[in-house]
Nucleic acid binder design. Structure first.
Lengths: 246, 246
DNA sequence: CATGCAAGGTTCCATATACAAGTTGGAGGT
DNA sequence: ACCTCCAACTTGTATATGGAACCTTGCATG
């Protein structure tokens, strides 16, 4: 004889002093995060949750509704609730890895290392990276190409105290961004986006006309309170646009 | 004799088919966005809203609760609800109100209405707004000035079904963005940012040289599944940069 | 004067109930 | 075979009610 109770759910934890609806949310989140319920898997209906967990329909409703606004599930009236596809959109925009981004478009990525060296920071740079004037700072300039077409000029300074081995990396295999986030998880980022005309040397590297407008992204990132890197990303306006959706 | 009804609130709009709690949210958002209620200003309590608007306490509760998760207000148990300090860089960027942004810098904002009219949508526009070809679509072009210097050219199309009264608004008092979010809360946005050279007519309005690079933000927003607006924001590169930090 | 306490306002949670609106699937007719 | 229509299920909204937890304020008591 089949039990009325679906053993997908354990009973709610009495000891926890979390609100009921939070407990319901936690149960469902668990299934999703462990992968037990894959994308598009059906989530129990509100009435089903009422039966299974013995809560009122309104608290089941609140749990599901909030999970929907959090992007964990999607709900459509008349059909039901389903596990939402994993949200991409790494942050807002920009923190995305240029190599990944190109890969997703099915194109080839190539990193052209223009310069890598360690420098002594002047006042401006020291201010940007929040280090003492005269400190050692790593500097790299890399030209990223998509199918052999230059698409991003990356001019980066790195706090040598945070990433002493930065210049030892093989930047044709791992992007600076990927390396840095792997050794120092980003806790804060600040960025400015503007439209500029390129400098002559930038034109040459990007193979564009002097009059072509470019997107300039200037970004600084911090990890646990310390400035990690300050980078200047220059994109030819005709070949690239930033995208974001949420 | 003082009336029990606080005239801070107008009565709810019967014609709108928005849910009640959304209407309540809209009323409060309007006060906040227009600056009538400054930061830390007290928001009416749930029971006060019940008296004023004649809704049940639970829907007042839902409205305030959602506004709190959206970051519009903060609530503390036992004390009340208060207008939250403007959060820097709403989410990613861009959905910010240009008037607010200028106001924060302590400068004066002026909206110069270039064009407002209703048009019949062609295939491209209909596709962008997800309406039938031939539908009526509102069109507005507004030049925003900061201390009398042109800083943003806003070229906007609005789904007339969602916002039939769009063109009746006084855009020198409330920005299109503020109005639209007040009547149709944003559920999704898609945006592209690119660097372009301006068109001749755009140069003239923005008072810039033909060769000056500009930031172009193209954005579409949805509210509960329906496309609300498609907008093209053009900023002179020398006068503006997008900022975000998280 | 200081401490404590009670009252009233506020948010927060939970439930029961009702109806509206969208989807699906099947029964039953043509 | 096809169509129509309805029943059942789903989410979405709105209301009424009750209690708990928390804060402020003012007053009574020591």
């Amino acid at each position: 004889m089949p039990s009325v109770i679906d053993h997908d759910f354990t009973t709610l934890d009495e000891r926890s002093d979390l609100p009921l609806y939070e407990m319901v949310k936690a149960q469902i989140k668990l299934k999703v995060e462990t992968g037990e319920w894959p994308t598009n898997h059906r989530v129990p209906s509100e009435n089903r949750i009422v039966e299974m967990l013995g809560v009122s329909r309104m608290t089941a409703n609140r749990a599901l509704r909030e999970l929907a606004t959090e992007g964990v599930i999607t709900r459509v009236q008349g059909r039901g609730s389903f596990v939402a596809p994993k949200k991409r959109s790494a942050g807002s925009m920009g923190v995305r890895n240029i190599a990944e981004e190109i890969g997703e478009r099915g194109l080839s990525h190539h990193a052209n290392i223009i310069l890598t060296q360690t420098e002594i920071s002047g006042p401006d740079l020291a201010g940007a990276l929040e280090v003492e004037v005269g400190s050692a700072v790593h500097h790299s300039i890399i030209l990223h190409e998509e199918d052999h077409v230059p698409i991003q000029l990356e001019d980066r300074f790195v706090n040598a105290e945070v990433a002493p081995d930065y210049l030892k990396q093989d930047f044709s295999r791992i992007t600076p961004n990927a390396y840095l986030t792997s050794i120092a998880p980003i806790s804060r980022t600040e960025q400015y986006i503007e439209a500029v005309l390129p400098q002559p040397w930038e034109c040459k590297l990007l193979a564009i006309a002097r009059s072509e407008p470019c997107l300039l992204v200037r970004r600084r990132t911090w990890s646990s309170g310390r400035a990690v890197t300050s980078v200047r990303l220059l994109y030819p306006g005709s070949r690239y646009r930033l995208q974001s959706s949420e």
